[in-house]
Design a binder for these strands. Structure first.
Length: 406
RNA sequence: GGGGAGGUGGCAGAGUGGUCAAUUGCACCAGACUGUAAAUCUGGCGCCUCACGGCUACGGAGGUUCGAACCCUCCCCUCCCCA
C-alpha cells in the first residue's frame, strides 16, 4: 500500500471538501483497508458522466487498495432524495427501482472493478423496520436541523411544498453508514448534509464517524445547471460513440477544463499545461476539446470507437460533409416528378410537425442533395440517392424510385 | 378548524372582459460568422393550412356574456398567518 501522502494526493484530486482531512489521515495511517461507501439511488436506468465523477473517486480508492462499498438505494429511491431539488422527486415503484438497479450496476462496472465491490441494497435493512424503529430514527434529528439545508429553506421561502417523507431521507442515508460501518463516504457536494448525518448517527451508535468527501457537481452541456437527465443536458455513458463525442464538443471552452479534471485520467499537470497553451494561443481550444471527447469515448467504447467518432465529427462538422451512416427511406415522386419535402421531414423525425418543417425550409436549413430547398415540394432527380439534410445534425438518405405508371 | 394569497406555454414569470396563441428572460431550433454541436450576432419557437384562415390552450368542471386566461359557482392542489 502506498504512503499516506501518496494516497492523499490521489484522493484530493477534484474534491470539494474532505471532512475531516485530519481524520482521514489518521485512518490511512493505521494502514487498514478503509470501507469506502457510496450510495446511489437507481432513479433512472442510465448513468451519465456527472455521476461518474463520484464513481471514479470510488474507483481510485479501490486502486489504492481500499474496500468499495456500493449501496444501491432500492429503498431510498422510493423515498426520493430531496437534495438540491427545488421540488419533490416522484416516488418510484419498487419494480422500477429494481429494474433500474440492475442496469445501473452493469454500467457502474464500466468504471468500477465490480469483482471487488461490496454491493448492498438498502432495502435489506429498511424493509423489515417496524414503525417504532422508524420513530426512533426520526428522534435523532430535529426540524430546525433539517431546515438548515438550503434546498429545504429555499423551498419554504419559494412556497414549494416539502413533504415529511423527504425529511426522512437524510436519516436513511446516514443509517446506511451505520449499518455498513463506513470509514469514508463519498458524494456530490449537494450531498454534504446527508453525509454529515451519517457522522452524527455513527457517533450516536458508538462508531467512529466517517470521513465525508464531497465532489463537485459537474455542469451539464449547457454549462449552467448540473448534469441531469431531467435537464436533458447529460452525456450518458451508454450513448453511441459519435453522439457522445459530439455532445462533449458542445461543452463550452471554459467548462472543458473541469471535465478534464473530473471525468478523465489525464494528469493534472498535463491539463494545466494545455490550459496555459490555450491561454497563450499556441494551442487551439478545439484540439484540446477533441482530445477530451476522445478520452471520454475511449473510456467507455474503446480506442477504435474514439478514433472513428472523431473522424466522423470532423467529416460532418468541420468539413461539412455527410455522415458515413444514416437512415434510408425510399420515395416515389408524384406525377410531376416532385417530392414532398415537408412530409419527408416529418415522417422521418427530422422535424416534429409540418409547421416546423416549413419553418426549417423557410430558414434555409434544409438541403437536398447539396442544394438548398426553397419550396415545400421539390423536383426530384428521376432516380438514385440523395441526402436530405435539416440543420447541422439531421440527415436522411433518400432513395428516389421511378414513379409508377400514374 | 378560521383568515389570506396563489395555480398561465419545457422552466421562470407578465397579463385581470375584446387589440391574447398570450410581453419578457432562460432553455430549445435555425441562419450568419467561425475555431467546435464553443463564443457572438440575427431570426424562429402550439397544431392544421402554400396562403387567407381555422382549431386547441392559461389547475378541473360548470355558468354569466355577442365575446373570458381575465367575472361568478363548485371541485382539486400549494403556500402563508392564526388556532
Amino acid at each position: 500500500m502506498r504512503s499516506v501522502e501518496e494516497q492523499l494526493k490521489v484522493i484530493r484530486r477534484g474534491v470539494v471538501q474532505i471532512c475531516e482531512e485530519g481524520e482521514l489521515r489518521e485512518k490511512l495511517a493505521r494502514g487498514k483497508r478503509l470501507r469506502v461507501k457510496l450510495g446511489v439511488d437507481p432513479t433512472a436506468a442510465d448513468l451519465h458522466l456527472g455521476f461518474t465523477v463520484v464513481l471514479r473517486k470510488l474507483r481510485q480508492f479501490q486502486e489504492l487498495g481500499h474496500q468499495a462499498v456500493l449501496i444501491i438505494g432500492t429503498y431510498t429511491a422510493q423515498v426520493g432524495d430531496p437534495s438540491g431539488r427545488d421540488k419533490s422527486r416522484p416516488q418510484l415503484a419498487e419494480e422500477t427501482v429494481m429494474a433500474n438497479a440492475e442496469k445501473y450496476l452493469a454500467q457502474a462496472g464500466k468504471v468500477l472493478d465490480l469483482s471487488r465491490v461490496e454491493v448492498r441494497y438498502n432495502g435489506e435493512w429498511f424493509k423489515g423496520m417496524k414503525f417504532m424503529d422508524v420513530i426512533k430514527l426520526l428522534a435523532k434529528s430535529t426540524v430546525a436541523r433539517m431546515l438548515e439545508r438550503e434546498d429545504f429553506s429555499g423551498r419554504v421561502s419559494a412556497g414549494v411544498p416539502i413533504y415529511l417523507h423527504e425529511i426522512v431521507y437524510p436519516l436513511m442515508q446516514g443509517y446506511d453508514s451505520v449499518v455498513v460501518g463506513a470509514d469514508v463516504e463519498l458524494g456530490g457536494s449537494d450531498q454534504t448534509f446527508n453525509l454529515m448525518m451519517g457522522r452524527d448517527l455513527q457517533r450516536d451508535a458508538g462508531q467512529e464517524p466517517q470521513v465525508c468527501i464531497t465532489m463537485p457537481l459537474l455542469e451539464g452541456l449547457d454549462g449552467v445547471r448540473k448534469m441531469s437527465k431531467s435537464f436533458g443536458n447529460y452525456v450518458g455513458i451508454n450513448e453511441a460513440p459519435k453522439e457522445m463525442f459530439g455532445k462533449i464538443m458542445s461543452v463550452s471552452d471554459e467548462m472543458m477544463w473541469k471535465y478534464y479534471e473530473l471525468v478523465t485520467d489525464v494528469a493534472l499537470e498535463e491539463i494545466e499545461e494545455m490550459r496555459e497553451g490555450v491561454t497563450e494561443g499556441g494551442l487551439h481550444p478545439m484540439e484540446v476539446k477533441k482530445r477530451l471527447a476522445g478520452e471520454i469515448v475511449r473510456m467507455y467504447h474503446g480506442e477504435g470507437a474514439a478514433r472513428e467518432a472523431r473522424e466522423e465529427f470532423e467529416r460532418v462538422f468541420s468539413a461539412r460533409e455527410v455522415p458515413s451512416e444514416m437512415r434510408e427511406v425510399r420515395v416515389v415522386p408524384d406525377g410531376e416528378g416532385r417530392i414532398d419535402v415537408v412530409g419527408l421531414l416529418v415522417k422521418n423525425g427530422l422535424a416534429s410537425s409540418n409547421g416546423e418543417a416549413r419553418r426549417l425550409i423557410g430558414q434555409g436549413a434544409v438541403e437536398l442533395g447539396g442544394e438548398r430547398v426553397k419550396e415545400l415540394r421539390v423536383v426530384a432527380p428521376r432516380e438514385g440517392e440523395v441526402v436530405l439534410r435539416a440543420g447541422k445534425r439531421r440527415f436522411l438518405r433518400v432513395i428516389i424510385e421511378r414513379g409508377g405508371t400514374t
